[in-house]
């Protein structure tokens, strides 16, 4: 004889859910909005075969502080003012015709556009990178975030 047991449907599965609480609107912005909401464009990129001299000309003429280095559209590194200071400046005449790939920061810290905006702050403040590439979930470049762009985003919580 088949036994049947009574099945009590569980109560509301979200009954124990405690929504996060935030101290103010800025905390809510950082926790609930995505990196993709931070303005991450425009950005400049160069091919990895670009020479150091060309990259420095690009940095100077555009006034930006960093260039994303790409191969076939994929991010392979970032070339920043700090790379120039640390690896290029004191031997510029010897290395200016070499490819930028030899002097860039490979495997840079990145953030995904779907991560909370707080991740961009963490990349800048904790990891210590001033320019952080933003990728989508297919690892395609969406842009770059900087302290200034993050601060401008934070200001939107003041309205």
């Amino acid at each position: 004889m088949t036994e049947y047991r009574r099945f009590d449907a569980p109560a509301d599965p979200l009954s124990n859910f405690e929504p996060p609480t935030y101290r103010d609107t800025t905390a809510e912005l950082l926790g609930e909005h995505h990196v993709g909401n931070v303005a991450c464009q425009p950005y400049l990129s160069v091919e990895s075969t670009c020479t150091v001299e060309e990259a420095i000309r690009e940095l100077y003429q555009s006034g930006v502080s960093s260039l994303l280095v790409v191969e076939e559209g994929n991010l392979v590194g970032i070339f920043t003012e700090r790379d120039v200071l640390e690896r290029v400046a004191e031997r510029y005449s010897r290395v200016k015709h070499l490819p930028v790939a030899e002097f860039m920061t490979s495997d840079p810290t990145i953030v995904y556009s779907e991560e909370p905006a707080a991740a961009a702050v963490a990349a800048i403040a904790i990891a210590g990178h001033r320019h952080v590439p933003v990728l989508d979930m297919d690892d395609q470049i969406e842009g770059i975030v900087s302290p200034r762009r993050v601060f401008q985003f934070i200001e939107t919580s003041w309205d």
């Binding site: 800025t26 905390a27 909370p116 707080a118 963490a122 904790i126 990891a127």
Partner: peptide, 13 residues
């Protein structure tokens, strides 16, 4: 980061 450590310090970069 200091002001919003609860949001920032928990991120997995």
């Amino acid at each position: 980061c200091d002001c919003y450590a609860r949001q920032v310090a928990v991120q997995r970069l």
